[in-house]
């Protein structure tokens, strides 16, 4: 039996959608017993959501006022303590998981595999490197504990309808006070979340200005999509950084991805290649984005986008 401990990411009493994808990855480990760990100030609601994910065997709920808002330095010693029986400790490849999991690995003296996209055996995994230009098969010595972040774009969310038992536990470990949360400023929240949206519309450098970028936002709102941006558009100041899609931004896998005025630099393509359907709108027929697009439309985006909207 391999006990796979999945560390839950949550905010405002809601379990992050990435966790159901982590559960799919955890369940792919041979002979896995999937246990979700919820660390929270008040975590009953989050634990109940985790318990409903298909494939989850148990939910561990450890409540402590210091656990929210989440700080890696405060969570890591608790995860490490509770991982005593786990052969694998997984977290999502979000900024939460990327920050936390290596610190857990350090405390456990374990090897971490980042961005797991496939599980081959209990100790052999596949992950992207070189901005997605290569896929590495990596192996950890048998018997060594594996810490991993799960590349959420590579996994389908596990279903719901389960009813795993929730165990309340207390963690007896000193928590540091050297790291303190000050604030978080979130972007506009009435649009779907970029990381988990079924539809995404992204704008690139061809938009030409922050004012023109409103065209992308309007189109996205029209079809109920999240808004993304290429690195060029973010660097030029047309869109905030949290909208950046690509190897150095967010890696996403929506059902529908519409790239508007994006040429398709390799680092951008890496972030979208798991999208089900890619649509590209660009005036340059030679743009690399057309090499990966399922549907391409060549022309002036300022004319074409309103035309598309008028047909909806």
């Amino acid at each position: 039996m391999n006990q796979v401990l999945v560390v839950a990411e949550h905010s405002g009493g809601k379990l992050n959608l990435a966790i159901a994808k982590c559960v799919s990855c955890a369940a792919a480990v041979p002979d896995a017993e999937v246990v979700v760990l919820v660390l929270a100030a008040d975590g009953s609601a989050v634990a109940a959501q985790a318990a409903a994910i298909t494939g989850v065997k148990r939910v561990l709920l450890a409540e402590h006022p210091a656990s929210e808002p989440a700080l890696a330095a405060v969570l890591a010693p608790q995860v490490a303590k509770l991982a005593a029986d786990a052969s694998h400790v997984f977290g999502p490849s979000t900024t939460f998981g990327k920050d936390l999991m290596p610190r857990v690995a350090a405390l456990l003296d374990a090897q971490q595999i980042s961005d797991v996209m496939a599980v081959e055996t209990a100790n052999r995994f596949r992950r992207p490197c070189y901005a997605g230009n290569a896929i590495a098969t990596v192996e950890v010595d048998a018997g060594c504990r594996v810490v991993a972040t799960v590349r959420v774009a590579s996994w389908q969310a596990a279903g719901s309808g389960g009813s795993a038992p929730i165990e309340r536990i207390s963690v007896d470990t000193p928590l540091p006070t050297h790291t303190r949360f000050v604030s978080v400023s979130a972007g506009r929240s009435d649009r779907p979340d970029l990381q988990t949206a079924a539809r995404v519309v992204s704008g690139g450098r061809a938009l030409g200005s922050a004012d023109n970028f409103a065209l992308i936002q309007r189109f996205a709102d029209r079809i109920g999509a999240a808004v993304g941006a290429s690195r060029a558009a973010v660097d030029a100041g047309y869109a905030p950084n949290e909208l950046q899609v690509g190897q150095t931004g967010k890696i996403i896998a929506p059902e529908l991805y519409i790239a508007v005025g994006i040429s398709g630099a390799i680092q951008h393509l890496t972030g979208i290649k798991d999208a089900r359907t890619i649509v590209a709108i660009n005036k340059d027929p030679e743009a690399p984005i057309f090499e990966v697009a399922d549907l391409g439309l060549v022309g002036d985006l300022f004319k074409l986008v309103p035309e598309i909207e008028s047909q909806l």
Binding site: S11, T94, T95, T179, R180, V182, V184, G187, Q195, E242
Partner: peptide, 12 residues
């Protein structure tokens, strides 16, 4: 720079 936007923390 976190997924939600910008987070500020203070560290010793």
């Amino acid at each position: 720079e976190v997924d939600a936007g910008l987070e500020v923390i203070e560290v010793d």
